[in-house]
């Protein structure tokens, strides 16, 4: 089965495993069931797969950067479709975190897309989504920065859709 990869990186993967399972389970359409929750390598916290059809699947690799401070992106196959960075607006310096993650994956962004999900926006009114967008523009990447609630699978679905359209705005649906 052919696969495209989406990599999710964030300081905390709390709740993400359940959320991805929901996204993947909800979209299973009587095709092969994916491999579930297995360790793929030393830096991946977990992997979930979404079967698109009999021959294709979308793999989500989740990485908790705090547990794996030296992530080697090269170990993933070359079919990285994009990255979803999950930022916690309540962290001590989320914009600095964003810049650090960005530089970590920078070399891959020539061929893949980026989307940023920001959680806990209501807890820290000093930083707004527009601040994340501005930071991304300064990094010369007008990526989507969308709010993200790690109890809401629809939010995750929205982030994935934004990523897919960033790869190809001409997608018809």
């Amino acid at each position: 089965m052919n696969g495209l990869n989406i990599i999710l990186i964030g300081p905390s993967s709390s709740g993400l495993s359940d959320l991805l399972s929901t996204l993947c389970d909800a979209n299973q359409s009587n095709t092969d069931l994916p491999d579930r929750a297995h360790e793929t390598d030393s830096t991946t916290c977990f992997q979930r797969s979404l079967c698109i059809d009999k021959n294709n699947k979308l793999n989500f690799f989740c990485i908790n950067e705090l547990e794996n401070p030296s992530i080697q992106m090269d170990q993933f196959s070359k079919k990285i479709l994009g990255f979803i960075l999950l930022m916690d607006n309540n962290a001590s310096n989320p914009i600095e975190d964003l810049e650090r993650y960005y530089h970590m994956i920078h070399s891959h962004l020539k061929t893949s897309a980026l989307v940023v999900g920001v959680s806990n926006l209501a807890d820290n009114r000093l930083l707004k989504l527009t601040d994340y967008s501005r930071c991304l523009r300064e990094l010369n990447n007008p990526a989507a920065a969308l709010s993200f609630n790690n109890h809401n699978a629809q939010n995750l679905s929205t982030l994935v859709q934004a990523l897919l359209y960033s790869v190809d705005p001409g997608l018809e649906c």
Partner: peptide
């Protein structure tokens, strides 16, 4: 994108599937 057909299928999947919250 060279993956366009696959990406279109994925978007359709996501759009057509109601997702419950946790």
């Amino acid at each position: 994108s060279r993956y366009r057909p696959l990406l279109e299928k994925t978007v359709k999947h996501l759009l057509n599937t109601p997702l419950p919250s946790k």
